[in-house]
């Protein structure tokens, strides 16, 4: 056996274990120490996702494209919904991008703790890593679908609203924060009450109808706009359309309401998750 040079091992530091009271401190230090685990979990989820499928990564394309085709038939050909002058396929696909990311993140994130219960009951690591990495793993599908969108826009000769495209990452961030916030709540509840598994399909379907994915937000009348924007995903989808296609009014009070709600869900989710974390291994 060849002699392997010893790497300097970290200095032993003392860990104090005691019952945490009330809302536990967020312990971001541990999250930093375990940052590589987030990377590995995301990497594993991506690697494993399309293993032993015939079509492999093509599924990342097929799923949104099929949804877009169904929407085009139902809402464009049959219902003839207004699209502010944008060809309907492009109009719908622009919204399906962040929506797809959100749905994957929400579903995977909410089930992450229960799905990895063997890890939770056997070793210590910051439990936050599980919903976080599930949410991040959806980004690859998003990137692939984005390429399709570029192709679609090219085909339908839709000029992107260039001066606004730089705001896309911000709307993406809003979608991620929202998905993570909801996933933190639901994954922690799911540990004790598996009702979450049953509620998720219904929740995502309901949420889809409450979000302007298949239709334009302009069909909602003025006095309902604020109430409507309590759904943070409405802000995200409107923002995507505004940034890429130039539709709508751009950021106004409704966007800030969406941002506010999203941050509220995220912060409260973080604290709820942390306060329940200590019982995960016992109740899962």
């Amino acid at each position: 056996m060849t002699q392997i040079p010893k790497v300097p091992i970290h200095e032993p530091h003392t860990v104090y274990i005691k019952p945490s009271k009330g809302l536990a401190a967020l312990n971001l230090r541990d999250l930093w120490v375990y940052r590589e685990l987030i990377f590995f979990m995301v990497w594993r989820d991506i690697k494993v996702k399309y293993k032993q499928t015939l079509l492999g990564m093509a599924w990342a394309v097929i799923q949104p494209v099929m949804t877009m085709l169904v929407f085009t038939f139902l809402f464009d050909r049959v219902a003839k919904l207004p699209t502010e002058g944008i060809p309907y396929p492009v109009f719908a696909f622009t919204a399906l991008l962040p929506w797809g990311l959100f749905v994957t993140a929400l579903n995977q994130g909410s089930r992450s703790l229960v799905a990895h219960n063997n890890m939770v009951t056997k070793i210590y690591f910051p439990r936050l890593i599980l919903p976080m990495s599930s949410v991040f793993a959806g980004m690859v599908d998003f990137a692939i679908a984005f390429v399709i969108l570029v192709g679609l826009m090219f085909y339908y000769q839709v000029t992107p609203a260039w001066n606004l495209v730089w705001t896309l990452p911000l709307f993406l961030l809003l979608a991620i924060v929202t998905a993570l916030g909801v996933a933190l709540w639901l994954s922690a509840v799911n540990v004790q009450y598996r009702d979450v598994n049953q509620a998720l399909p219904f929740l995502t379907q309901f949420w889809l109808f409450a979000t302007p994915v298949a239709y334009s937000a302009s069909v909602i009348s003025e006095e309902w706009q604020i109430l409507y924007s309590l759904n943070p995903m409405a802000g995200v989808v409107n923002g995507f359309r505004w940034a890429l296609l130039g539709t709508g009014n751009g950021p106004d009070i409704t966007l800030w309401v969406s941002v506010g709600i999203s941050v509220l869900i995220f912060i409260s989710g973080l604290f709820y998750f942390r306060s329940m974390e200590k019982t995960f291994a016992d109740t899962i």
Partner: peptide, 28 residues
Amino acid sequence: ILSRVTEPTTGTVSVRGRVGSLLEVGTG
């Protein structure tokens, strides 16, 4: 409790250094 999988209800523990356990063989 020593490997921090679960929290104690009462009392404190101080542990100097990393705890590895062979409970976790093959986890993940």
